[in-house]
Nucleic acid binder design. Sequence first.
DNA 1: TTGAAAGCGCTAACAC
DNA 2: GTGTTAGCGCTTTCAA
Lengths: 327, 327
Amino acid sequence: MSDVARLAGVNRVTASVALNGSSRAGTRVSDATRLRVIEAAKELGYTPNAIALALRGQRTNIIGYYSGYEFLDAHDPFNATILNGLQRRCQMHRQDLLIFGSYQRNSVEEVYASLVNGKIDGLILLPTPHSPVLDELLQSHLPVIAVANPVPNIASVTVDDITGSRLLAEYLAQKKHQRILYRADPGEHTSTTRRLEAFLEAAASFDMDVQVSRGEKNGRLRAEEIDILRTPQELRPTVIVSWVDSHAYMLLEELRELNIRVPDDIAVVGFDGIRLTPRPFCALTSIRAPWNEVAETAVDLLMMLIDGEKVEQETMLPVELAIGDTA
Amino acid sequence: MSDVARLAGVNRVTASVALNGSSRAGTRVSDATRLRVIEAAKELGYTPNAIALALRGQRTNIIGYYSGYEFLDAHDPFNATILNGLQRRCQMHRQDLLIFGSYQRNSVEEVYASLVNGKIDGLILLPTPHSPVLDELLQSHLPVIAVANPVPNIASVTVDDITGSRLLAEYLAQKKHQRILYRADPGEHTSTTRRLEAFLEAAASFDMDVQVSRGEKNGRLRAEEIDILRTPQELRPTVIVSWVDSHAYMLLEELRELNIRVPDDIAVVGFDGIRLTPRPFCALTSIRAPWNEVAETAVDLLMMLIDGEKVEQETMLPVELAIGDTA
DNA sequence: TTGAAAGCGCTAACAC
DNA sequence: GTGTTAGCGCTTTCAA
């Protein structure tokens, strides 16, 4: 920029003012000077240095996305949907998006330091239960929005898990299901916990029998679950509810291997409702949650926080029942 | 940091040296002082400011990923695989990853400016054909590694498209296919162009008949292609080669709607070989390309470029034939 | 072993 | 309408 100023025959700061038009202060430049400066900038291929700007203005125009302690697998449809939403909205707000992926091997201090070191203006967080970083973030002044899981004292964007579970229970009741196997989230996320509780409550109101099974992280059937599926038809569950679609799809594959037909022998439902491409081998009955909008809303709210505005503690988006071939 | 120094009763720079141990210069601190400084830093919860560091050191430890002019759809298995690879490797090199997504509405100058404004130390680029940003990037001093598509004068990491096409042609010849419909990339990427050319050459050497069709961007069948599929069985192609798996999967769905059975009525093969979860409705015969390693290698090479080392113009990774149910 | 000076690139506030 | 000063947080070079 010194070069630009020199070429235009003016002072550095005059050039600065001429270029970015922030003429709010007493500082003004004549049109002639401005034109000369712009000309010079173009000739020299001048590009403002974002880092200097960031240091000066205490703002980088980068927002971060941190997906808890797990590796951020873009193949996971949920993650992909969130990423897409974040991307779109960031572009709209002219922010860059910085991905903090897996930090398995780093200490909490290191992770925390990497989040508050000034690189990002704010953080979108996919909270994991009991994450120690959460406590530290609460102390910091970094603007944070949580997605999917509500967190005390952090503003969050979530979906209406409770209505979702009720819709599911109603649908299953209407289909005359009596015995249900609910495969619950092995991790204890706040959203999936309330999802489970709401389902149990709704199912009770319909006099349905629910057996809860907390499975493996990888979603595969455990021996106990296989035993349940092998009990005589008139005793075993007539439907399996999966806390999340991805595990439901894995379940469908395992059922096929066990020669259990869906939905004839047993029905299967999920929760997520993300449309997949290429289309999987069957259409899962599920609750459709608008993860895309969750991500977009999260960015909007984060921008408000960054700009010093207040936001709601929890913004909950509506869900709907999506009927497929499996129940 | 001033605060830390004050609390420890030393000068700012003494504190700096004490903390980051870069005691290479004549500057040294006694263990006692260092201990006192570290203590003070811990007490104050001091975190070094990455932006100041970046301004000082002309290095942000952020690398960028820019996927050409298209929206970076994380649902696309290719994109997801690349993202995963980048993430993993970035973490290993202790770099942050900045995603530049869609820039549909921005001018070339704006995109270029956002790439060279100093936020990133280097760029991983998924090149689109004739992208004007390419020319500008060549002029700049920003280290760049291209992935998937070779680009003149930019180091790239690619897969062996030519061997892949030959493997495919050989396999089809061995399966006694004579008439082939090759659905080519509607965009003219350097990789898919050589993929097509190699296939034509190999097919010719096996005396196979190849009809080339350049389809829609969205991968759906055009009217002409449907006409071809409606010609009598003894005249129409016995196999369709798709330039990429994702379009092959869409094709399979369309064929099902047209009541054309695969592979009985017509065989289908693709190119990519990305393993999908949940599993799609059928296993596609394809060429398995190691996109994961492509991304990882790209990061490795980019780090070398950033550190001032030279790298190969093109690094080509091997592919293999993956036989599925469709051919 | 420690401190002082200079500067990374930029701009808000003021004085001319 | 234009130039000067100061400082964002940090580190490398040199002098004490």
